[in-house]
Amino acid sequence: MGFFKRELSPVEHFESALKARQAERQKLADRLSLTDALLAEKRGAAEKLAVAGAANAKLERAEAAMRAVEERAKTQRAALAECDEQVASTERALADAAAQRDRNLAADGIEALAGAIEQALPKFEAGAGALVGAVTTSAASMVEATRFSTSVEAVRREILAAADLICWELRSAAVRTRAGNANVALSAVLEPEQPQSAEIERQLIYTLNPLLWREAGEVRRVPAFALVGLPKGLLPAALRHQHVDHLNARRVQTLMHVHGSGRSDGEISPDDPHLVDLDALAADETDRAEANVA
């Protein structure tokens, strides 16, 4: 029983072709070098005969021999130039094949990441469900436990929605990477968000307008159509005025498919007329509520 030969990859195929063409070029160059040396010899001989005043017949034979070698050198030089073009073309093809191989490896890694997230989701869902079940199936009832159960369920839904979206984005990025037209959206998927103040309680939310708020003495500005960790104290006002929405909202899923997750640390001009000051918005709502109570 014969052995099956492994099929060469595109990179291996072009590497082999390049080596063959380079070897062929070397042979042509060696032949041309010998022909040039012979041509120099024929020219020298013809020159000596002419200087010595040799008979016309000898001169004609010397010139004919010289022209024959010149034609051979011309033909070999043309063949060498053509071979040089083939070598250059093969080098470009090899570079393209290597780039495609690297893109495929990167795309495989992105797809593997999406697969790993999807495989981890059932464990997360089971764990969150167990926490909720521990409260809902208990005979005892406490407000704190019920509030905890509700929060866990909300987080569970939010994370499942976010995981679905990020897996979709990762697979879209893998397709673009494999095709060689990956854009900034890929970097937005793969680059981690800037670290935020750990002491501030936040919720992952999707922006519908450019926003700003103050945090630890600094002004934070985020673009529209971006995933951000918004301080929970600003969340109610932002939701009521529809400047943000939850990740599992249907319109957010559509917007993320259109715009991607975006980058929450993009440069936003302070003079942007669409920029919404969430601190001012929340303060205004607080003032209105106090006025109504009074």
Rank of each mutant, 00 (worst) to 15 (best):
G2C: 04
F3I: 12
F3H: 14
F3W: 12
K5D: 13
R6C: 01
R6F: 09
E7F: 05
V11N: 01
V11S: 06
V11I: 04
A17P: 00
A23F: 04
R25G: 15
Q26S: 12
K27A: 13
A29Y: 04
D30E: 14
D30M: 08
S33T: 11
L34K: 09
L38T: 13
A40L: 07
R43L: 07
E47R: 14
L49N: 04
A54N: 06
A54K: 01
N56V: 11
L59H: 09
L59K: 10
R61V: 11
A62I: 08
A64K: 08
A65L: 10
R67P: 00
R67N: 07
A68K: 08
V69Q: 13
A73H: 07
R77D: 10
A79P: 06
L80T: 13
L80Y: 05
D84W: 05
E85N: 12
A88R: 14
S89R: 15
R92Y: 03
R92H: 11
A93L: 14
A97D: 06
R101A: 15
R101S: 14
D102Q: 15
R103I: 02
N104R: 13
L105V: 13
A106I: 09
D108G: 05
D108W: 00
G109C: 09
I110L: 15
Q119M: 12
L121M: 15
L121G: 03
L121E: 13
P122N: 05
P122S: 05
F124M: 13
A128C: 03
G129D: 15
A134I: 03
S138I: 01
A139F: 11
A140Q: 09
E144S: 10
V152R: 00
A154E: 12
V155R: 03
V155H: 02
R156W: 06
I159V: 15
L160G: 07
A161T: 00
A163N: 07
A163I: 01
A163L: 02
I166N: 04
I166E: 14
C167Q: 07
W168A: 15
E169W: 00
S172Y: 03
A173G: 14
A174C: 08
T177A: 13
G180C: 06
A182V: 01
V184P: 00
A185H: 09
L190S: 07
E191L: 14
Q194H: 08
Q194L: 13
S197I: 08
A198M: 09
R202E: 02
L204R: 06
T207G: 00
P210L: 01
L212E: 11
L212A: 07
L212D: 00
E215L: 10
G217F: 05
G217N: 07
G217D: 06
E218W: 01
R220W: 08
V222R: 08
A224S: 08
V228W: 00
L234Q: 05
A238Y: 02
L239Q: 10
H241N: 12
Q242Y: 01
H246S: 03
A249E: 05
R251P: 03
V252T: 13
Q253I: 02
L255A: 03
M256V: 14
M256K: 02
H257P: 00
V258L: 09
S269M: 04
P270C: 08
P270E: 01
V276L: 03
L278M: 02
D279W: 05
L281D: 02
A283E: 15
D287E: 14
D287T: 12
R288Q: 12
A289Q: 12
A291V: 09
A291S: 10
A291I: 08
N292H: 10
